[in-house]
């Protein structure tokens, strides 16, 4: 697990990651008005933070590819699968730990209860996997960092808009809602909606399943071995 260890240490060294991982969540978790169950914008904002964190973490894989480090890594007996799996595992672990810390603090402050906390952690973690996979697929399409960032910022605002971050998904017209369904953010909103309403029905699990399918699709696309 050498690659895993290095990816872990390397990610924690970057200031942008640290800010996205620990400063921002702590900053918003204490703003009480964001966390009322009736108008819980905070849950969705936290989802966006995960999305950005995943993108900035996966950036190191792209840097490896651009600088030719990946060629040197593959000179060793390392399979593409090992390299990607250990990197993504390290990133996921960082986000996962942060999610648990965040949910524990939130529960203590606002009394969410055990079941809701577990469901939140599950939702956020599966969304983190989908975000990591999405970032991987996204970065595999671009050769330059600037280009990738520029288009990503457009896409992410679109995803936020259609995924119910700014407008609740129930208020979207049917046509836009069906476009929004093509992004994992919609399904995060959907699952969070049912958590907030404390309705434990099939819709929650359906959202989890669809996010899982999204992760699989993005991973399949992003894991193609590319040496440049």
């Amino acid at each position: 697990m050498t690659i895993f260890l290095f990816a872990f240490i390397r990610s924690l060294r970057r200031k942008s990651t640290l800010v996205a991982m620990f400063v921002l969540p702590l900053a918003i978790v204490f703003i009480r008005t964001l966390w009322t169950l009736e108008n819980g914008r905070g849950f969705l904002f936290y989802g966006m933070i995960i999305m950005f964190a995943a993108f900035s973490l996966v950036r190191s894989i792209m840097i490896d590819r651009m600088t030719g480090t990946v060629v040197r890594i593959f000179a060793a007996p390392v399979a593409t699968f090992q390299y990607l799996f250990q990197n993504l595992l390290a990133f996921w672990l960082i986000i996962g730990v942060q999610t648990i810390v965040f949910v524990v603090i939130g529960s203590a402050l606002y009394g969410w209860g055990i079941e809701m906390a577990v469901r939140l952690i599950l939702s956020y973690n599966i969304f983190a996997v989908a975000s990591l996979a999405f970032s991987l697929a996204w970065n595999s399409m671009f050769r330059s960092k600037v280009m990738s960032d520029a288009i990503f910022s457009i896409i992410i605002s679109l995803m936020a808009l259609l995924g119910g971050i700014f407008i609740p998904i129930s208020m979207l017209p049917d046509f836009l809602r069906k476009i929004g369904m093509l992004f994992p953010t919609y399904w995060l909103s959907n699952s969070l909606l049912f958590i907030q309403d404390k309705e434990w029905n099939g819709q929650y699990w359906l959202s989890i399943l669809i996010m899982f399918l999204f992760s699989a699709a993005f991973l399949l696309y992003g894991s193609k071995r590319r040496l440049e």
Partner: peptide, 25 residues
């Protein structure tokens, strides 16, 4: 998008996409 069916259609789209990508890989 034109005909009702909410989630079944999306599930189908996603599964087909995954299988397609799988065969591509």
């Amino acid at each position: 998008t034109k005909t009702g069916s909410d989630v079944a259609g999306l599930f189908l789209l996603l599964s087909l996409l995954i299988l397609m990508l799988f065969r591509w890989r």
